[in-house]
Simulated assay, not measured.
Amino acid sequence: MQITQYLSKILQELSPSVGLVSDEDAEKLVNGILEAKKIFVAGAGRSGLMGKSFVMRMMHMELDAYVIGETVTPNFEKDDILIIGSGSGSTKSLVAMAEKAKAIGGKIAAVTINPDSAIGELSDMTIKLPGIPKEESQNEATIQPMGSLFEQTLLLFYDAVILRFMEKKGLNSSTMFCRHANLE
Results as ranks from 00 to 15, higher is better:
V55W: 01
V67N: 14
V55H: 07
H60T: 01
M61L: 13
F54Y: 06
I83L: 02
T71M: 11
T73M: 06
N75G: 07
R57M: 05
D64H: 12
K92D: 00
S90Y: 09
M58P: 13
S90K: 01
I68M: 15
I68N: 15
M61F: 12
R57Y: 04
S90H: 01
G85C: 09
I68W: 09
D64W: 14
E77S: 10
K78Q: 07
K52F: 00
T91D: 11
V67R: 10
E62S: 15
V72F: 10
V95A: 06
K52H: 06
G89E: 01
S90G: 02
P74E: 00
M56K: 09
G87A: 01
V55Y: 02
R57H: 03
K78E: 07
D80V: 06
S88L: 05
S93H: 03
G85F: 07
I81G: 07
S86A: 01
G51W: 07
I84L: 07
F76V: 09
S53C: 11
H60E: 08
T91G: 12
E77T: 12
G89M: 03
T73I: 08
V72M: 13
K78N: 00
A65P: 12
G51P: 10
T71P: 11
S88I: 04
I81P: 10
I68R: 15
E77D: 09
M59D: 10
R57K: 05
V72H: 11
S53H: 03
E70W: 04
M50R: 04
S93V: 10
E62V: 10
L49S: 05
V95T: 08
S53W: 07
F54G: 05
I83R: 11
A65S: 15
D80G: 00
P74V: 03
Y66I: 03
M58W: 00
V67Q: 11
I68Y: 13
K78L: 08
Y66A: 11
S90M: 04
M61I: 08
R57T: 04
M59R: 11
I68G: 14
P74K: 05
S88P: 00
E70V: 02
S53I: 02
L63K: 15
S93F: 08
V55C: 10
L94I: 00
G85A: 13
P74R: 05
H60K: 05
K92C: 06
L94R: 11
G51D: 12
S88K: 08
L82T: 04
G89H: 00
V67K: 03
D80N: 03
T73A: 12
V72T: 10
M50V: 00
S86M: 05
N75S: 01
M61Q: 15
D64Q: 12
F54C: 09
K52W: 02
D64I: 14
S53K: 12
I83D: 03
